[in-house]
Write a protein that binds this DNA or RNA. Structure first.
Lengths: 113, 113
DNA sequence: CTAACATATGAGTTATTATTCATATGAACG
DNA sequence: CGTTCATATGAATAATAACTCATATGTTAG
């Protein structure tokens, strides 16, 4: 009885293991959320929610140093969560696409319960 | 001209600052995503996607130690991403609600592009 | 009650990462 | 061109957080 039970459980576990998304995809998903998982970056993203802002303005909105904002923008840029364009001396940042908005909204919803 | 421009920009920045969600909400959103932003926890969540598993089984699926799985389950539990019930000596974990599914699906979608 | 099993937890170590400071790059304008 | 303004970046430090190991808690079976 026990043995049979164990065998079934073993089979079930194997089924689950085989149905998992590939290791590397899971890793990428974690990396994606990791980018959202920092309060400075979240503040930047919400500052850009519907707005296009240059680095200095973002720093002013967040009341943080230009340098740390710039460092975090690079991470957001690498993750393709923000896009940017140059206009003279300034560089304007904006949220990259609808996915970013959706993920932010979903996070907000989960928190506001 | 410059001065007027600056004034408008200042007003715009103030408008943005005032429209930001409260500091503490942003902090919580970041904390939420931080929980999703670790590959061990993401692997646990996907193992639980549609399944109810006990700790030992999760450890087997992930091929990790019982201890580290348990530590991460505590974090998932604190964040209300998983729920659990006891059955005899075992404790079975499952995803807590639809939000969790949605957030995971959204992350997956963003990655698979 | 005690042995055996499943899970949880605390302390310690190591790895990761955000911020600061100093400086580099790059564009505009006289 | 060279100066100024806006942004980016490298190195160093400081703060977080994951994993391991040992052990504690809690449940069931005998």
């Amino acid at each position: 009885m026990e043995a049979k039970q164990d065998k079934n459980n073993e089979e079930m576990l194997n089924a689950i293991i085989n149905n998992q998304p590939p290791e590397e995809v899971l890793y990428e998903v974690a990396e994606l959320f990791k980018v959202f998982g920092d309060s400075t970056r979240i503040r930047i993203l919400y500052a850009l929610f519907g707005n296009e802002l240059c680095v200095g303005d973002i720093a002013e909105v967040l009341n943080m140093s230009q340098s740390s904002v710039s460092h975090q923008l690079r991470i957001l840029k690498d993750a393709k969560l923000v896009k940017f364009r140059r206009e003279g001396k300034s560089i304007f940042y904006a949220l990259d696409d609808d996915h970013v908005y959706h993920i932010m909204e979903m996070g907000m919803e989960h928190v506001e319960e």
